[in-house]
């Protein structure tokens, strides 16, 4: 009851923090798409480059987020950005690389060789092939990677509250430090609901992006 009252009294703040949380994740994942997709496409040209890039991305994703913050803050302090939005956005950007690059790479590589052959057969240049055949076919799988990245990073962004990035983690942080179960529960629930909603919402988008007659699992 307590919790509910607190929630109703602070609804405005909750909405504001949710929007902030979403915006931070969107900006970072948006940047990750802009960088990750071209990298994913580029490395389909070279097996060795692909192995190296994917390996680095998988090592990065193994580094715990709080450790990554801890590593970045001293470096970013040099330009006066030690805590706040910047390290949070950089961390999300880095973590998003693996799912996005890997899915782009796999999707383009998995385009049916017969289709590629057919595209070449009707006289498409490599660029046209990429634009008209390979990318459209790859979009649903890339979207699946984006979805993974978003869901994962909603969680990372919650932790980023501890380095002053704001967002819904603020409630959890305050709840813990003030031993206030109301804020603790609201923060935890809000961030969970946000992640689950994003998961389902992006699944819907992913299905929308799937051309009719093309079924993609996941």
């Amino acid at each position: 009851m307590d919790t509910l009252n607190f929630l109703l009294e602070n609804l405005d703040q909750l909405v504001a923090l949710t929007l902030e949380h979403l915006m931070l994740v969107s900006i970072a994942v948006g940047l990750a798409i802009v960088t990750g997709v071209p990298i994913g496409i580029a490395i389909t040209q070279n097996q060795r480059a692909a192995d190296i890039v994917l390996y680095i991305a998988s090592v990065i994703i193994t580094i715990p987020s709080i450790a990554l913050f801890g590593l970045m803050i001293p470096v970013l302090s040099l330009i006066g950005q030690g805590i706040g939005y910047l390290p949070a956005i950089i961390a999300v950007l880095l973590y998003s690389q693996l799912p996005i690059i890997r899915n782009t790479y796999t999707a383009i590589n998995n385009v049916d060789p017969a289709l590629r052959e057919a595209a070449r057969g009707i006289g498409m240049t490599p660029l046209q092939r990429l634009r008209m055949v390979e990318i459209p076919l790859a979009v649903p799988i890339i979207m699946a990677g984006v979805r993974t990245a978003v869901v994962m990073n909603i969680g990372v962004m919650a932790i980023a509250a501890y380095i002053g990035a704001g967002g819904l983690g603020t409630y959890i942080q305050r709840g813990i430090s003030q031993t206030d179960p109301r804020q603790l529960i609201i923060g935890a629930m809000a961030v969970s609901v946000l992640a689950i909603a994003a998961d389902y919402g992006l699944l819907w988008v992913q299905k929308k992006f799937t051309p009719k007659g093309m079924k993609v699992a996941g």
Binding site: A67, L68, F69, G70, L71, I73, P74, I163
Partner: peptide
């Protein structure tokens, strides 16, 4: 986490690193 969070709280980068580097190495 003790070193990392305390390091953040008291703005002590070296303490932060003392927690973050072993954490990252442990994970890898």
């Amino acid at each position: 986490g003790e070193l990392i969070f305390t390091g953040i709280a008291v703005d002590e980068p070296i303490m932060m690193l003392a927690g973050a580097v072993p954490t990252a190495l442990l994970a890898i």
